[in-house]
Design a protein around this nucleic acid. Structure first.
Lengths: 348, 348
DNA sequence: CCGCCGCGCTAATACGTATTAGCATCTATG
DNA sequence: CATAGATGCTAATACGTATTAGCGCGGCGG
């Protein structure tokens, strides 16, 4: 294979147009300040040569000379596409792409980040972060130490999902889980439920924290508002526990767990919401086949992606004033699994 | 916001370790050629300072000096994520991401490319292509003129899907539609079918071309092997036409058309394959709900994505010898819609 | 004692663009 | 006609890393 023709540079343009490289740069950047002036005919000549040669500025060199690149980095703590996380990341990416296209930015997926201890690391030997003007962070749990470092380095970024401070406020676009869960709890209370159980996933992520907070804040008038942890695999034991407690409504963090719980109940001839109301606290993060329309809420993932780009562009160009933290409302889903508590159980 | 602390550079490391910047670079790159030697104690000292400062090489500067930045561009002629094309692009991206991760490359999605006349353009005013070392092209129909220009510029790229020459051979990783279709035709002939119809989509893309070629090549012993064009919307008219012709097996290019055809038949009390065998020629490109298991073949999309990256890396570093064109076999899907032709119809 | 060689490192330069100080040249003004 | 100011451009430099020619030094053979 013959060695490819060397790329066309500003120097080439300059030679062809009979000007200096600096002039080409000035023309390209439309510099018309009082400081810098280019005669119209010179400008035209340069532009003509540029058009003829199909010259395009090397974005890398541009970046080195400390200019913006119009590249937005996307860092996913798990692979972005593979089937497992597909349904989790996809809506975010959809929104991100849409808004990136709107503002004329390209998206750089950091697929090269090495996986250590089961998760990708932002910072590693050959850190490529700076290729982008800024970066969007996606993932259920984001390493606080890495957020610290981003803050320390002053690198523009935004997290998708609320994050606790990490050596300073973390810019984020999250979903308002606390309010959504609280609304659902209120609704259950209005239905007459008094014995509630929060079935968590035992995670420490902020998103879990927020749901629990909303639950506790709204459940104050309940007779009982306990919390347990459960996984989809232990649905039968969980169900035993719920029934023994006299729980009439379960708020289930994991969608898969809710599905398993409902199946377990049905296997025993029980129904939701007849014998036990089940409320889900978010869309499935892994594909779970089910025909049940669960009562719960929808996470505005796509919109979160869009707004993440919006916030990031603000952080990058510094036009964003103060705090860059947004919580978007979740739309409640009516569903069929929240009903009036069974009097027999209720009066126990 | 206070101005961020200046980045740590090799010069800083050099100063702290009492060596020159060049030495730092040499240590970092583990250069131990006969040409270049570093005393072990010097190396250790430099490495210690690097560890202490948390220094990370600026990938931008690195790329400027080395000409490679380990970035693979991904150009999709339609938006990559949106729902419409979701099921079409996703498997490709999955494979691409997997292999990119393996070879330690990042993925740059060219979302900034402007849409003109309903499709994105690679080449436009502020061309960003060169940020990547090379580029993967995705899309049903790829503009031949743009391929010409890529070839002329000597920019490394690879198309997903077979492409005709464009001012030179086009590197691609495609699916062997011709063989897959031919196999299905042979199978139909073995079942006793003699009157075949190819129901195309009226497209000029290479992928359509290949299917037709395979059809014609294998259908030589048929009594009749005609071609018609149809869309999902005109299923009833198409069905009329097929029945009037005495066709016993239809090879349907568009998955959605096949679904519509089957529905139309069922509405008339006809069945597939009882009254008409239906063979599909590829997976759905848009989501179409159906319970029917159509006879046809599966396009190895994920594997195409993987191999596209593999071929591209070869093209980029020039290690790839000659022609970079691969056709991957499609797996035939047994399905339920190809059967023995109805004797009543057959003998007409 | 000289020359040579191998070792360990550095100085210089390249990569392509953006920016800035300042040099010619021309025009207007006193 | 001298001078100030405006105009149009260029030379020089910075950005941070990679590469290469070559320098100084010590040891060794002659």
């Amino acid at each position: 294979m013959t060695t490819p023709p060397r790329r066309v540079t500003q120097r080439d343009i300059a030679r062809l147009a009979g000007v200096s490289q600096a002039t080409v740069s000035l023309v390209l950047n439309n510099r018309a300040d009082a400081e810098v002036r280019i005669a119209p005919e010179t400008r035209d000549r340069v532009l003509r040569v540029i058009a003829e040669t199909g010259y395009a500025a090397d974005p890398v060199a541009r970046r080195l000379a400390s200019r913006f690149n119009r590249i937005i980095g996307v860092f996913t703590y798990e692979p972005a596409f593979p089937s497992g996380s597909r349904d989790f990341f996809h809506p975010f990416l959809l929104g991100i792409e849409e808004y990136a296209e709107r503002v004329g930015c390209d998206l750089l997926l950091f697929t090269s980040a090495p996986v250590v201890d089961g998760r990708r690391r932002i910072f590693h030997q050959d850190n490529r972060l700076r290729l982008a003007d800024g970066c969007i962070l996606l993932g259920r749990e984001i390493d606080g130490a890495e957020l610290h470092r981003l803050n320390r380095d002053g690198f523009p970024y935004v997290a998708v999902g609320r994050r606790d401070d990490a050596g300073g406020p973390v810019p984020y676009v999250g979903a308002d889980y606390a309010t959504a869960v609280a609304r659902l709890v209120e609704r259950a209370l209005r239905c007459g439920h008094r014995r509630l159980t929060y079935v968590g996933m035992g995670m420490t992520a902020e998103s879990s924290e927020d749901r629990r907070r909303g639950y506790l804040a709204a459940a104050t008038t309940a007779e009982s508002a306990r919390q347990v942890a459960a996984e989809a695999g232990e649905a039968d034991a969980s169900l035993d526990d719920l029934l023994a407690d006299g729980t009439t409504v379960a708020f289930v963090e994991g969608f898969a767990t809710a599905v398993a719980l409902e199946s377990a109940a049905r296997r025993r001839g029980l129904t939701a919401p007849g014998d036990l109301s089940i409320v889900t606290l978010g869309d499935p993060t892994v594909p779970v086949p089910t025909d049940i329309a669960f009562t719960g809420f929808r996470i505005p993932r796509e919109e979160m992606g869009r707004q993440a780009v919006e916030v990031l562009t603000g952080v990058i160009d510094g036009s964003a004033g103060g705090l860059q933290q947004r919580l978007l409302p979740c739309e409640l889903v009516e569903g069929d699994t929240l009903g009036t508590p069974d009097p027999a159980v209720d009066r126990r």
